[in-house]
Design a protein around this nucleic acid. Structure first.
Lengths: 127, 127
DNA sequence: CGATATATATCGGTTGCCGATATATCCTGG
DNA sequence: CCAGGATATATCGGCAACCGATATATATCG
């Protein structure tokens, strides 16, 4: 499936490519920008991720251009990649929501929870 | 710091411990339950994560109990762990939100985005 | 008595991130 | 004019982390 278990680096590369095709170095800058500087994708990480995502059919080489004598290799999201990104975003939102809810519960009752059986958790969050 | 870069496994272990102390095997079941079966934490992964989180001061050994001749080792979130979990949940929510927005943008204008300069992205999401 | 569930823990293989390094061009500052 | 930084690509080796397999031990069920 490849739809399960996506690394943070892969997630942000896909996100950077979600609105338009970009080249490697551009992805680096874009990821830092869209995460407000919180995520700094490393050069050494990028190309491994790019190769893996290409092999998994999540992205494809869109085109190659030359600017000022420097090659730019543009990558683009595939439909499968967009789908996987969407699913991963859903999972992340659900996980974040579940975590926040449980933190609130723990603060209300520090030592014993009201109803541990699944609780309000999420469960209906994705599905 | 340890506040940056948390693995998925660590995140879900902290989430499982957010409302009440649990023991290893209980965490395994709880993570699967709270993620609606989407995340299956492996036994081989668990103890490594537990040791790492303990070393980082995110969790502590709460108590040890014996049930039916079987030892149960309960772990509990520290204040630092709760704080880190909260911060990570925030980051995940922001990332998920940014991804969804960009997917929507890509569908509206497939080939050229309206305003690539940072865009509405998030930027104000965290901070 | 064997299988399954509970509950702990370790080990080795594989995957994946990251720092360092290499190559090449363009621009700016001294 | 040359050193340094930004742009832009790519590779390699070390290290961290996930996961399957395996081991040990007890209780229950068939």
């Amino acid at each position: 499936m490849a739809s399960k278990g996506m690394t943070t680096a892969a997630f942000f590369v896909l996100t950077a490519l979600a609105d338009q095709p970009r080249h490697g170095y551009g992805i680096l800058r874009e990821v830092e920008e869209l995460s407000d500087g919180a995520v700094q994708l490393r050069v050494g990480t990028l190309y491994g991720v790019l190769d893996r995502l290409t092999a998994d059919g999540m992205i494809v080489l869109d085109r190659e251009e030359v600017h000022d004598g420097r090659l730019r290799r543009y990558y683009r999201l595939t439909d499968e990649g967009a789908q996987a990104l969407d699913a991963e975003a859903e999972r992340m939102a659900a996980g974040a929501s579940a975590a926040k809810q449980r933190i609130a519960e723990g603060r209300k009752a520090p030592g014993a929870a009201a109803n541990p059986t699944t609780g309000p958790g999420l469960a209906g969050g994705l599905a």
